[in-house]
Design a protein around this nucleic acid. Sequence first.
DNA 1: GAAGTAGGTCAAGATGGTTGACTCAAAGCG
DNA 2: CGCTTTGAGTCAACCATCTTGACCTACTTC
Lengths: 147, 147
Amino acid sequence: MVDSKRQRELRQDVEALYFGYRTFTSLPDRILAERGLGRAHHRILYFVQREPGIAIGDLLSLLKVTKQAIHRPLKDLEKLGLLTLAPDAQDKRIRRITTSADGALLEAQLTGAQVRMLESVFADFDAETETRWRAVMRRLAEDNQEG
Amino acid sequence: MVDSKRQRELRQDVEALYFGYRTFTSLPDRILAERGLGRAHHRILYFVQREPGIAIGDLLSLLKVTKQAIHRPLKDLEKLGLLTLAPDAQDKRIRRITTSADGALLEAQLTGAQVRMLESVFADFDAETETRWRAVMRRLAEDNQEG
DNA sequence: GAAGTAGGTCAAGATGGTTGACTCAAAGCG
DNA sequence: CGCTTTGAGTCAACCATCTTGACCTACTTC
C-alpha cells in the first residue's frame, strides 16, 4: 500500500507537469495569436534573445527541429522586422540571427508573461522552496542533453 | 542590477520548464511511435485510467479540445481494443470510457516511463526538496482551472 | 580542384488541432 | 404529449507544425 500511494503521488506529479506546462504556454499563445504568430515564433525569439548572433544551425540543434521546420517562422519574423539575419564576418556561410528593437520588445512581452506567472506562484512560497523547485527543474532539464 | 539578476534567474526557470517538459514527453513518444500512436492517444489513456468511466464530454473539458479533435484517436484506441465505450446506465446519451486490460497495460508503460524519470530526478535530492517541488508544481497546475 | 559544411528550397505527407454545420437519440420539461 | 436541450457522431474545409528526402548554391577547407 505504501508503494501504491507513492505511485499515485508520482502520477499526480506527471499530471501537474502537464497542466502546469499547458497554462504556462497558453499565456504567450494569446499574445502571439493577436499578431498572427505561433509558438514556433516565440521559441525562435527566445533563443535568439538568449544568445544574440546565434547561427541558424545552432538554433536548429537547440530546438531539435529540421531546417525546413524553422524556415517559415524565421522568414516571417524577418519580414516583420523582428529579426535580422546577417552573414558571419569570418565564415560567410553562417548566418547570424539577432533581434531588432521590436523583436526584443515582443520577446520581452512573451517571456515576460511567463516570468510574471512564475513570480505569482513563487509569491505563495518562501525563498527556500523556490530555490529547491529551481534545482529540481534544472536537473529535469539537464536530462535533455542526453536523450 | 539585483533586479536584472532576478530576471535572468526567472528566464532560466522558463527555459528549464521548456527543456524539462520536452524530455518528459519525448519518453512516451518513443513507445507510442512503435505502435503507430501519438501523444493524443496517451492523453486519452491517462485520463481514462485516472477516472475510469469518464464521459466523453468531461474528457473534452479536461483536455480542452473539441469533439472533432478527440474523435480519431478515441476510435483508434477502441479499434485496438485498448478502450471500451459503453452508454451510461441512467443517461443513455452519455458514453462512458474505460480502459481494457491491454489499455491499462499500455498506459502504465507510458506514464510509468515518466514516473521513473521523476524518480530518477528525485533520487538526487532529499525528501524535503521533493515535497517543495511538488507543492510549487501543484500551484502552477492550479492556475489552469482559471484561464 | 575536390570534398565538406551552412543554408535554402521544393515536394509530399503525418499529426493534431480548428470552425461550422448538420444529424440523431435520449432526456427534461411545460 | 410535444418541444427543447443535451451528448455525441460526422462531414468538410482548413491551418500550424513538423517530418523525410532530394537537390541546389555558396563558401570554406584541405
